[in-house]
Structure formats: structure tokens, C-alpha cells
Write a protein that binds this DNA or RNA. Structure first.
Length: 813
RNA sequence: GCCCGGGUGGCGAAAUUGGUAGACGCAAAGGACUUAAAAUCCUUUUCCCGGCAACGGGAGUGCGGGUUCGAUUCCCGCCCCGGGCACCA
């Protein structure tokens, strides 16, 4: 009879169908078991599912299964992309996430994407929308509006001409749109809705201490830099007559203010308009334009004198006011005092235009070297600074900013690099912002009971840069909820990052129609125990969702301050030497792999190719090897289950069992520590190689134990095959609801210790002894070894190093 | 420029605390089975030298130094690749 062949289609279909019904993936509501919430980061809905996503899921999935088997009450809702978390979608995810989110479901995942994620349906040229999906976003928006955390203002914003929409600062990558890496972002002044993430800047920074250890240092550093807190002072330089008023500058080095030899305004600074004549304003405008979309490093510093002067409030000195293209309007006050002696950029600018350089900090011996680069930035002792001379820099800063406050021309100040989150988008898709513009009452929120505000269907996508919703009279024309007069609905929609900021809360209570979620459920499940995703979200999703968490805490919905206790960032997937991305056109789709070899192979191969935190250089040839391996396992199992004739017990049993327990030990330890699944899988391969070699000699009882363990071991990585073997063994139920098998350290032990013999550190031979053999005997045996002897002949042994059970090294002369 | 990673065979990689470098897999070559092919099973495969051979010797983890009985691993200097930040006052 021909041997049964591994047919992944048949196996995966069989168990997939069963698992659909079984509902066993559901986390238990009232469980005595410890809880474990594991979540993979979602792919962006408009993106293609590619190897990077498989990798993300494969890691989380393996971990979730292992945790189940270790007796945790596991919530692992991400099985497909429930990005926008409509109740229905998330409910499915919770109850039966393709649960094992099988790769063969990719087609249906894509459909789900279209249906529930806020994307335009490109196939049908219309958009579908899911009302429940908007409700809670809008509800949160109203809560924030009540608290002043959501506001509208006219602002210069980033504009992507290709998307024809506004972008948040976080979504601008190297001056270009994050989705169109070749399209420079433009600046436009528009009325926009903002969320006041800056109100939480300190908390976002402060709470990172709780995350240390659990989050990668790299991500924390990126967030710290992004928030960019700096302490300093704001100081007013009164304008000399004939101009009136003052220029407020921000500095972290108020101790150097006696060295300030000019003031520089950003070209967009409001004073430019007030102080300058038309040609001057035009020059400033030209600077702004020249800067758009360019790498700041490539732009030479330039500026011009305004004809006006400011008065240094400490020294009374009259200093010229300039406009400079390197001064940023978006940071600090948009104006600086230039201290060329102690700031590299100021130095470059001032020497170019002949503005004097005047040192006011003396380096302190031993603290500073004499290179100017160091003197630019380091602290020292203040000099040539009137009454402050002689103070250490740090002390001078404290006293001088306090003085400014006392005298009323300044104050200590903290500035952040992070800015408020602009969430207005002029796209069709996305949650409508629930606001109404009334000519009489102004901006009026839509009453809570009228939520959700739903997008109209069949909207023409114009791509003109104005919201397509403006052309839908039914949507736009409303009555004002306050005065009942005619009013216009807000047509901007929300950034889709809003949706992803709290989806993982909704997963805990996906069908709640009265609240975003039940706080009690959150109290049980949160914080997320393990969040897994790519590092590319380090300052987008991961900062927004931390902000949302704090906001929800402050409105009393939740108790936790942080969303996730631990974060694992998997390595990027590289193809042809470049990051896999749509714009580079090197995306390897998940479909191909799953279609050809099945979900088990796809998942396992991605894990096998590299350790998860490392970059994965994609080459699909290797998948064949994993497929072959799974076939080997399948055939071994099927032909050895219920065989009529097992050989009698013998040495082979011991060897096979030893390898088994060694493998089990390795996998267990890896899951608990470093997740190097590539070596876990290779150790299973080694085991199978041993099993093939010993196959004919393994007796009945060990064979049965081995097959059982093999199924359990494979369950995290190749659940379908594991389940198939499990069922063939006659066992009931899903294999990964079994307890994870303990390894037996005694069985895992080798009979004899292999002791390496070196002469002068070079390997010359090996001897085999019982474990714990005493040193003298070991040395004798080592000396006596045939391979070693010639190297000791006519030599004097100066020193002998013995590492018990491992190594003997003779140092000879 | 600054801050993180990383550099090991033809390729992906392993070596977990300083102790056998190259596990496991891919690709390649050879063999068995087969009318044949596929599939499967077995063998070889870091480089150089010697040998018909089993085998023996030497070199070798980006480069140059150092510490050590012993270094892919620790230290110093450099080169290259990837990622993040970058007029943030």
C-alpha cells in the first residue's frame, strides 16, 4: 500500500472547519487562571498583506498557543484585521478569530478589510460604511471637546498633494507623505481640528519609566526625542523705537544671554508682517517656499536685517533683529536670540553676516576640552555678564530665569517638540467629525443621542483637496441642535489613526452598544501583556494609543495609564536589499506562500528564517524545505501510529527519548526567554532526523510518547499538522488546549560527558567520561589520548586548565 | 553630524555565562529506488596544502591591535551595511 502523503489542503480544511464551530478560542470570562492578553499590531487596512504581516501574526500566534498550553487564560483577538472595530468584526475576532487566523483566509480578510476598515472599495467604486464603527470614535471626540482636548484653529498644516489631504506631523517622513514617499509635503493654512496631545506631553514622558524593561529601549528613545521636552526660559526683548512691543524668545541657555548679539525671527513669524515693508515680507515668503519639502541639512543658512533693534533686558544692549531661514516657527516662540560664541548654528549664521561673536562662558578645567565644538554646547562659568559673572552655568540659569520672572520680562519655560495632533482629513473615508457649524451659535457638537453621524454612500471621490462630502447636500445641510436654525455639518473626517488608538480596548467587549466597552472587563484584561508589531509605529500608533489611554483614564473609563506592559518589535522584512513597501514594488504577498504550501508552512518558514527581532531578508526558496519537513513529520507519524509490529525495547529508545527531552527543554526555555523560534524549529528538525535514523528500533511505548510529544511541540508553530497527528493518535479536543509537556532533565542528560582536549588552546582530541569525573583522572585520560599524545611529546606542560565535564587545556612550552 | 542595531560558508543562519566555529535549513553535486520523471531515502559540501583513500596539517567569524591558557563573544582604533534623529535654540 502506498504511503499516505502530506496534503496540507485537506488537513487545513478539515481542522479549519472544525475550529470554526468549536468556539474554544474564546477567553474565559471568569477564570481562576492567570490572564494573558497578547495582541499583534494591525496592518494598515489599505496596505497589502505581506510577509511582514505573516511574521507579526506567526510570532503572536505561537506565543498565544504556548500560553494556552501553559494554563493561561489567553485573549488573542487579532486574527484578522479588525482595524476599525465595528462591533460585529471585533465580536467575530473575539469568539472565533480566524483564530488561528489562517493564512488561507486571506481573501476573506481582504473582503473584511473593505467592509469594515474605512477604505474606499476600489472594486465597486463606492464606499461602504459600518455605522457602529463611527459611534464610539465620535463619542470620544465629544468627550474630548467637552474637556477642551479637541479644538479647531487655523493652522499651517502638512498637505500631501497625492492624498489630497492634511497629514499629522507624525505622518510626514523626510518631508514627504508616509504613504507617498516621493511626494513632498506642502504647507497650507487651513481650519483644522486638533487633539491636545501636548496636554499629556509630560505624562507621556514620565510614564515611560514604567515601560522600561518591557518596551525596547529604542522605541522609548524615539518617543522621548519625539516629545522633545526642553527646559529653559522665555525672555522678552523689547523693540527699540520706533517699533513698539517685544520679541519673545525661548532659550535653554539663558546663562549665555550676555553673548546674544542679535535676534532672529522665523520667516513665518507674525512680527515679520508687522515690522517689514512689502519687499521684506516677500523675501521672508521666498524663504518659506524655498524650505518646503527639503532636507534641512541641505539648506544654507541665510537671512537679512530687518532694520529694527531689540533691547537685551539684562544688559540693556541694543541688538539687531534679523530674519533667518533656519529658525523654526513651530518650535519655541519662533524667534531666537543668537549667541554665536556658544551655539554652532548661531556661529555659522553670524560669522556669515559679520555679526560679532562674544564669549560669555569660560570652560572649566577638566570639564571641557578646548575644542570649540565642545565650548558651543557645554556648561562652564559665566563671565562678562554683569552681576551674574562667576556663577556656574546651571546656577546662572536658575537665578537669571527667576530674575526675569521677578522683573516681569520673562519666565522659566518648558518647550516640547511634539505638537497637537491634527486629525482633520479631507478624505471620504474615516469617521465624520461630529460637529455642526451654525451661523448663530458657532461650532456646536452633535448631541450624543444623535450619534453616530454616518457617511453618505455613493459619494464621488473628487481628489480636489476639498472634502468630497461638501458635495452631498443631504449630509451637509442640517439644523443647528442648539437654535434650530439652518446650519452646516463639518465635512472633515478623522484621521484613521484614531481608530487604531483604542481598538484593543474594544476587543475586550466588542458587542457593547451602550459604551465603548465595559470598564470592568478592561480592569480584568488590561494592561496588554504582550503587544507585538513592527518598529515603524514607534511614534505613530504607539504614541497615539498611549495618549488615548491617558485620556480614557481621565474621563473615568479605565484605571490603567499605559496600554501595554510589554512590547516586542519584530525586525523588518527586507526584499532585494530594501524595506518591503508598496512604493518600492518589492512586496511579497502572503497569498502565494499560503496558496502553494499552506498556512503551517508559511507561518513556520517565516519563523524559521531568522530570529524574530532581526531583519528578515526574504527569499522564498527555503519554504520548500519547511514543507518537506512537515511532510517528513506527517509520514513518520502516520506510518508509526498503531503499527502492528513494534521492535522490542532497546538502546534506540533511550537515544530517541533523550533527544526528545532535549528538544522540549530547548523550546520551553526559548518561549520563556528569548523567542528564538528559528532554533526551536531546527531542534525539532534534529529530533526528526534522529527519529528517522532510529525508526526501526523504537519500541511501542516510547514511540507513542514521542508522537504525542511531537504533536504538542508542533502545536505553537504548525497547529494544523499538530492537530492532525493529535487526532490520529486518538486523542480528543484541540491539541493546544493540552497542557504543555514538562521535560525530564534526567532523560535529557547525555550518558557520557564529551571532554574536549586542547593543547595551547587548539583542539587536539576528545575523550568521553562519566559526568562529574574527578580532575586527576580526567587529566590522565586526556594525556593518554592518541591524538593528543604527539603534541605533548618533548614538551613541558606548564599549566593545565580543566573545566569539569567540558574541557582540558594543556599549556606547553 | 549624533544615537541605536548589525557584519560568520554559494545563501538564510547557529554557537544562550570567554571553552569543539558553521547546528538546522536552502542551493549544488553524487548515489539508491523508478521504464522514465516527480516524490522519497542516503551521502558529500568553509578555504588552502598533502594523500588513491580513510585521514593528517594549516588558515579562518569585516579590518588592525590588545587582554586571556583559550576570543564570533571582552577592550581600543578603523571600514562597511541597516534603522532612528537631525537647523528643536
Amino acid at each position: 500500500m502506498p504511503e499516505k502523503q502530506y496534503d496540507h489542503n485537506q488537513i487545513e480544511l478539515k481542522w479549519h472547519a472544525l475550529w470554526e464551530k468549536a468556539d474554544f478560542y474564546k477567553a474565559e470570562e471568569n477564570s481562576a487562571k492567570p490572564k494573558f492578553y497578547v495582541l499583534e499590531m494591525l496592518p494598515y487596512p489599505s496596505g497589502t498583506l505581506h510577509i511582514g504581516h505573516i511574521r507579526n501574526y506567526a510570532i503572536g500566534d505561537a506565543l498565544a498557543r504556548y500560553k494556552w498550553m501553559r494554563g493561561f487564560n489567553v485573549l488573542h483577538p487579532m486574527g484578522w484585521d479588525a482595524f476599525g472595530l465595528p462591533a460585529e468584526n471585533a465580536a467575530i475576532a473575539n469568539r472565533r478569530p480566524p483564530r488561528d487566523w489562517t493564512l488561507r483566509n486571506i481573501a476573506s480578510m481582504k473582503r473584511t478589510h473593505r467592509r469594515f476598515a474605512f477604505s474606499y472599495d476600489w472594486d465597486r467604486e463606492i464606499a461602504t460604511c459600518e455605522p457602529e464603527y463611527y459611534r464610539w470614535n465620535q463619542w470620544f471626540f465629544l468627550k474630548m471637546f467637552e474637556r477642551g482636548l479637541a479644538y479647531r484653529k487655523r493652522a499651517l498644516v502638512n498637505w500631501c498633494p497625492k492624498c489630497a489631504t492634511v497629514l499629522a506631523n507624525e505622518q510626514v517622513v523626510e518631508g514627504c507623505c508616509w504613504r507617498h514617499e516621493d511626494t513632498p509635503v506642502e504647507q497650507r493654512a487651513l481650519d483644522q481640528w486638533f487633539l491636545k496631545i501636548t496636554a499629556y506631553a509630560d505624562q507621556l514622558l514620565e510614564d515611560m519609566r514604567q515601560l522600561e524593561g518591557g518596551w525596547p529601549e529604542r522605541v522609548l528613545t524615539m518617543q522621548r526625542n519625539w516629545i522633545g521636552r526642553s527646559e529653559g526660559a522665555e525672555v522678552d526683548f523689547a523693540l527699540a523705537a520706533p517699533a513698539a512691543g517685544a520679541i519673545r524668545v525661548f532659550t535653554t541657555r539663558v546663562d549665555t544671554i550676555y553673548g546674544a548679539t542679535c535676534l532672529i525671527l522665523a520667516p513665518e513669524h507674525p512680527l515679520v508682517e508687522q515690522l517689514l515693508d512689502a519687499p521684506g515680507q516677500a523675501r521672508a515668503k521666498a524663504m518659506v517656499d524655498a524650505r518646503a519639502g527639503r532636507d534641512p541639512g541641505d539648506i544654507a543658512k541665510e537671512g537679512f536685517f530687518t532694520g529694527h533693534f531689540g533691547l537685551n533686558p539684562y544688559s540693556g544692549e541694543k541688538v539687531p533683529v534679523w530674519v533667518g531661514n533656519f529658525v523654526l516657527m513651530g518650535y519655541g516662540t519662533g524667534a531666537i536670540m543668537a549667541v554665536p560664541a556658544h551655539d554652532e548654528r548661531d556661529f555659522e549664521f553670524c560669522t556669515k553676516y559679520g555679526i560679532p561673536v562674544r564669549p560669555v562662558i569660560r570652560p572649566v578645567d577638566g570639564l571641557l576640552d578646548s575644542t570649540p565644538a565642545a565650548a558651543f554646547t557645554e556648561d562652564g562659568v559665566v563671565e562678562n555678564s554683569g552681576q551674574w559673572s562667576g556663577l556656574a552655568s546651571a546656577e546662572a540659569r536658575l537665578q537669571m530665569s527667576a530674575y526675569a520672572q521677578r522683573k516681569g520680562f520673562g519666565n522659566p519655560a518648558i518647550t516640547y517638540r511634539i505638537k497637537d495632533w491634527g486629525i482633520s482629513r479631507q478624505r471620504y473615508w474615516g469617521t465624520p467629525i461630529p460637529m455642526i457649524h451654525c451661523p448663530a451659535c458657532g461650532v456646536v457638537p452633535v448631541p450624543e443621542e444623535q450619534l453616530p453621524v454616518i457617511l453618505p454612500e455613493r459619494v464621488e471621490i473628487t481628489g480636489t483637496g476639498r472634502s468630497p462630502l461638501e458635495n452631498v447636500p443631504n449630509f451637509v445641510n442640517v439644523t443647528c441642535p442648539r437654535c434650530g436654525g439652518a446650519a452646516k455639518r463639518e465635512t472633515d473626517t478623522m484621521d484613521t489613526f484614531i481608530d487604531s488608538s483604542w481598538y484593543f480596548y474594544r476587543y475586550c467587549d466588542p458587542r457593547n452598544s451602550r459604551m465603548p466597552f465595559d470598564p470592568r472587563k478592561i480592569a480584568y484584561w488590561f494592561e496588554i501583556d504582550q503587544y507585538i508589531g513592527g518598529v515603524e509605529h514607534a511614534i505613530l500608533h504607539l504614541i497615539y494609543s498611549r495618549f488615548f489611554t491617558k485620556m480614557m483614564r481621565d474621563i473615568g473609563l479605565i484605571r490603567n495609564s499605559e496600554p501595554a506592559r510589554r512590547l516586542f518589535t519584530q525586525g523588518m522584512v527586507i526584499a532585494e536589499g530594501a524595506k518591503m513597501s508598496k512604493s518600492k514594488g518589492n512586496v511579497v504577498g502572503a497569498d502565494m506562500l499560503a496558496e502553494r504550501f499552506g498556512a503551517d508552512t508559511a507561518r513556520m518558514f517565516v519563523l524559521f528564517a531568522a530570529p524574530p527581532e532581526k531583519e528578515l531578508d526574504w527569499r522564498s526558496e527555503g519554504a520548500e524545505g519547511i514543507y518537506r519537513f512537515l511532510g517528513r513529520v506527517f509520514r513518520f507519524a502516520t506510518r508509526n501510529i498503531g503499527r502492528a509490529d513494534y521492535p522490542p525495547a532497546g538502546d534506540a529508545d533511550r537515544r530517541a527519548l533523550r533527544k526528545l527531552h532535549q528538544t522540549l527543554k530547548k523550546i520551553t526555555e526559548d518561549f520563556e526567554t528569548r523567542w528564538h523560534f528559528n532554533t526551536c524549529i531546527s531542534s525539532i528538525m534534529e529530533l526528526v532526523n534522529v527519529l528517522y535514523a532510529e525508526e526501526g528500533e523504537i519500541s511501542a511505548e516510547p514511540m507513542c510518547a514521542i508522537l504525542r510529544h511531537l504533536a504538542l511541540m508542533l502545536a505553537p508553530f504548525a497547529p494544523y499538522l499538530a492537530q492532525e497527528i493529535w487526532a490520529e493518535l486518538g486523542a480528543e479536543g484541540p491539541v493546544f488546549r493540552q497542557p504543555w509537556p514538562p521535560f525530564d532533565p534526567e532523560l535529557a542528560k547525555e550518558d557520557l560527558a564529551e571532554v574536549v582536549v586542547q593543547v595551547n588552546g587548539k583542539l587536539r582530541g576528545r575523550i568521553y567520561t562519566a559526568f562529574g569525573a574527578p580532575e586527576p583522572g580526567l587529566i590522565e585520560a586526556a594525556k593518554a589520548d592518541e591524538k593528543v599524545r604527539p603534541f605533548l611529546q618533548d614538551k613541558q606542560v606548564v599549566k593545565t586548565i580543566v573545566v569539569p565535564d567540558k574541557l582540558v587545556n594543556f599549556v606547553v612550552r
